[in-house]
Design a binder for these strands. Structure first.
Lengths: 101, 101
DNA sequence: TGATTGGTTAGCCATAAAGCTAACTATAGT
DNA sequence: ACTATAGTTAGCTTTATGGCTAACCAATCA
């Protein structure tokens, strides 16, 4: 499922940092790599994982690959969480109703 | 980090299903296991992972272990997502401002 | 007390994740 | 044409994940 991949992608601090960086705008692979002490191929793997989750898209022009955030994928997660919250809040409401009577 | 574990816990459909079930109220390990074709020990592993992420708490009384959702852990994720959204929306706002002038 | 139920422990397997190095490709700059 | 830059591929480790079975403990119930 898509949610598997999105949650999985966000379960790593490096990848969350990349996402945070991309919230501020597009960046090349090199720019994304700078803050980390990691070897490039390792970082590329993270980018691949982010891409396969749908959180990031990238396009190569010349020898530079630019990456951008796909906010819809993050929205998917927000939607899922909101749905859960609704269920548990309804339950708490029922509980409160019950306790009042 | 805590977020690592929470996102990791939610990256599996079985565990998300458990979380969804617990949104509706407490449940024993046995009740949680029923909907799945999985062997009990496998399911227990998932419960352990959910516990170590802080999403679920459990307590054993007699021979029955009751599990409950810890909504604060889900809230942690919501907070992180909201923070990202704020950043990217600010950027889009700036972009719009720029395009207007 | 003996059997059943509810969960737990231990240990095995296959696959995937996260990192590395080394070597390679392809574009840009001089 | 040569060199430096920006990624990419391949292949290797180590550790974690997700599943299983088989055997085990502990609380009920008859």
């Amino acid at each position: 499922m898509q949610l598997d991949r999105v949650f999985g992608a966000l379960s790593d601090a490096t990848r969350r940092a990349i996402v945070m960086r991309l919230c501020d705008g597009e960046a090349s692979v090199g720019e994304l790599a700078k803050p980390f002490e990691m070897a490039l191929p390792s970082l590329m793997k993270h980018i691949r994982i982010l891409e396969s989750s749908g959180l990031v898209a990238s396009e190569k022009t010349g020898r530079v690959r630019m990456c951008s955030l796909q906010t819809e994928a993050l929205a998917t997660v927000e939607v899922w969480l909101a749905a859960q919250r609704e269920v548990w809040e309804q339950r708490l409401d029922r509980l409160e109703m019950y306790l009042r009577n």
